[in-house]
Amino acid sequence: MRSTDERAAAVERRVKELARQKKQRQSRYLGLSAAAACLLVVVGMGAAMPGIMAGLSQGDYTNTGMMASIFYEGGALGYVLIGLLAFALGVCLTVLCFLLRRGSHRDKADENDDRNN
């Protein structure tokens, strides 16, 4: 038979395990939704490029080696758009890496706590 302290410890371990599983599910959902959003943005931009290229006149667009030159007729707006998208991608990647690292540290700490009990 278990004592009351042993039962309380077992319940506490189970509660911690359920909380850890819930956090893992949430992080998976967050990661999958972030990946889906990034894929949607990339596919959307890829689908929009033929329309942008068709709208440009052949005489104005002579240097195909420069990728940002497709926004030449739009003035600075195209360059600002590219800069904002690059910044947003960098911020998203930084936040994702930070969350992954913090989550791995938490998992290691939880494993160490479970081993000590």
Rank of each mutant, 00 (worst) to 15 (best):
S3K: 06
T4L: 01
T4R: 02
D5H: 11
A8G: 02
A8H: 01
A9Y: 00
A9I: 04
R13Y: 03
R13F: 04
R13K: 08
K16T: 13
A19L: 04
A19F: 12
A19I: 08
R20A: 15
Q21H: 07
K23G: 12
Q26C: 05
Q26S: 08
S27P: 01
R28Y: 09
G31V: 01
S33Q: 03
S33M: 00
A35H: 10
A37S: 00
C38R: 03
L39S: 15
V43Y: 06
V43T: 08
G44H: 06
A47Y: 00
M49N: 01
M53Y: 12
A54C: 10
S57M: 01
D60S: 09
M67L: 12
A68K: 01
A68H: 10
I70A: 00
F71N: 06
Y72S: 11
Y72D: 06
G74A: 09
G74V: 02
G74Y: 07
G78N: 07
G78Q: 03
Y79L: 00
V80M: 03
L81P: 10
L81V: 10
I82R: 04
G83D: 07
L85I: 03
A86I: 07
L89I: 14
C92Y: 09
T94A: 15
L96N: 10
L96Q: 05
C97E: 05
R106I: 07
K108V: 15
A109P: 08
D110Y: 13
E111S: 09
E111F: 10
D113Y: 13
R115D: 08
R115L: 04
N117M: 08
